[in-house]
Design a protein around this nucleic acid. Structure first.
Length: 204
DNA sequence: AGCTAGATCTACT
DNA sequence: GTAGATCTAGCTA
C-alpha cells in the first residue's frame, strides 16, 4: 500500500457520502475503522487508514462536548452528519466526524491512523520519522494533516471537500476490540473506544 | 476581568 | 509514571 500512487488510491475507492454517517456514534465508530482519510493540499495528497476511534453519544453521554447544549465551541457538533468538529485541547487539535441527525451532537473522534500517502510531509510537521509516531493520537493526526479550527464545521461529503473518507471494505467484528475511552474524566466506564486488534498504529 | 480545566504530547526519571 | 508546556472557551463575579 505504501507504493500506491495518489491517483491509484483515489480511483480505487468511492468517497463516503452523508448517509453513511447519519447513524448513532456508537454504530458509526466501528464502521470507520479501516476507512481511509484523505486531505487534498496544494502540495499533494495526504492519506491514512483509520485504526482507532472513540464514540461520543451526544445528550446520552456526559463526556460529549455537546452534552450541555450548544455553545460557541461545539456548534458544529449540531450540524448534520458528515461534517467535521475540530476543537483545541492544550497545544493540539482533535478531529471528530459528526454523526446522527442535525441538532443531535453525536460524533466519532479519530484517535489513530496508519500513514499511507504524504508520509514525508507528515514527518516534517510532526518532527518525527518513526511511522508509528506519526498518527497515533488525535493531536498527532491534526498536526500531521495540518488540521486546525479553520476546518471546524467543514463538510466531508461535498464534491469539492478538501477532506473526505474513502469507502474501503468493512472490517469484521472479530478484528475489532472495544475498551474504555482515553483521557476523559467522566463516563470512564463506557466501552466506546474501538480499535483494530492487531494494528501497531494505536495510541498509548 | 480573571480563573480554571481540558477528548494532548513530550521529555524526562 | 509524571511534570510541564500552552491556549482558549466557559464559567464565576
Amino acid at each position: 500500500m505504501t507504493n500506491l500512487s495518489d491517483h491509484q488510491l483515489l480511483d480505487l475507492y468511492p468517497k463516503l457520502s452523508s448517509d453513511f454517517f447519519a447513524v448513532s456514534a456508537d454504530i458509526l465508530a466501528p464502521k470507520l475503522l479501516g476507512k481511509i482519510l484523505v486531505k487534498l493540499e496544494a502540495a499533494g495528497v495526504l492519506a491514512g487508514q483509520i485504526t482507532e476511534v472513540e464514540a461520543y453519544t451526544g445528550f446520552n453521554d456526559p463526556a460529549d462536548h455537546g452534552y450541555r447544549g450548544r455553545s460557541q465551541r461545539n456548534q458544529s457538533l449540531f450540524l448534520e452528519a458528515g461534517h467535521l468538529y475540530v476543537h483545541r485541547i492544550h497545544r493540539y487539535h482533535c478531529l471528530d466526524i459528526v454523526s446522527d441527525t442535525e441538532g443531535f451532537p453525536g460524533s466519532v473522534l479519530i484517535r489513530s491512523m496508519e500513514p499511507f500517502v504524504g508520509i514525508e510531509t507528515m514527518q516534517t510537521r510532526r518532527g518525527k520519522s518513526d511511522l508509528a509516531a506519526l498518527l497515533t493520537g488525535p493531536g498527532k493526526i491534526c498536526q500531521a494533516f495540518a488540521i486546525d479550527t479553520t476546518f471546524d464545521g467543514a463538510s466531508i461529503c461535498q464534491s469539492n471537500s478538501q477532506i473526505f473518507l474513502l469507502d474501503t471494505p468493512d472490517i469484521p467484528d472479530s478484528k475489532i476490540t472495544r475498551s474504555p475511552r482515553i483521557g476523559i474524566s467522566v463516563a470512564k466506564d463506557k466501552l466506546l473506544r474501538y480499535y483494530l486488534s492487531n494494528s501497531r498504529f494505536l495510541s498509548r
